[in-house]
Amino acid sequence: MASAPAPLSAPAPVTVRVQAEDFDTAAEIEALSAGRTDIGAVVTFSGLCREEKGALSALELEHYPGMAEAEIRRICDEAITRFDLQGATAIHRFGRIDPGDRIVLVIAASTHRQAAFDGASFIMDYLKTAAPFWKKEHLKDGTARGWVSAKDADDTARDRWTQG
């Protein structure tokens, strides 16, 4: 006996933006969750520019236009599948960023909290190690300290998602 095909659930929305402008965290949470009754948990991560004990004047963030968006989208799509998320948003800024300013926003929505925590953490770990962005530090004394070095700790954080 033929059974009716299972109803297709709407694909979980993924929003990815790479922009010079600041973003409104509350508005992004609202955009992701408004009108939804299937979401039970929303986890938000905000990355801010540290002042590095008063020495830092600003960060200069360079990115690879096109690939930056594509790579973050690949990471979000993987997180949606892996953690069965109900939606994800990732926004990353480029250009000059002053101490205290927002750099990155990740929002993960799911039915229950653990998937939302894990999803946001997974997206950030891969974003830091695979999304093509580079930070250069400018100091208050007018010198450029130079390009920030990649940290082994970031690779370690990423690798825990592929271990047993």
Partner: peptide, 10 residues
């Protein structure tokens, strides 16, 4: 083809 250092975003 793009060549670049290890990434430091986020």
């Amino acid at each position: 083809i793009a060549l670049f250092p290890p990434m430091t975003g986020g």
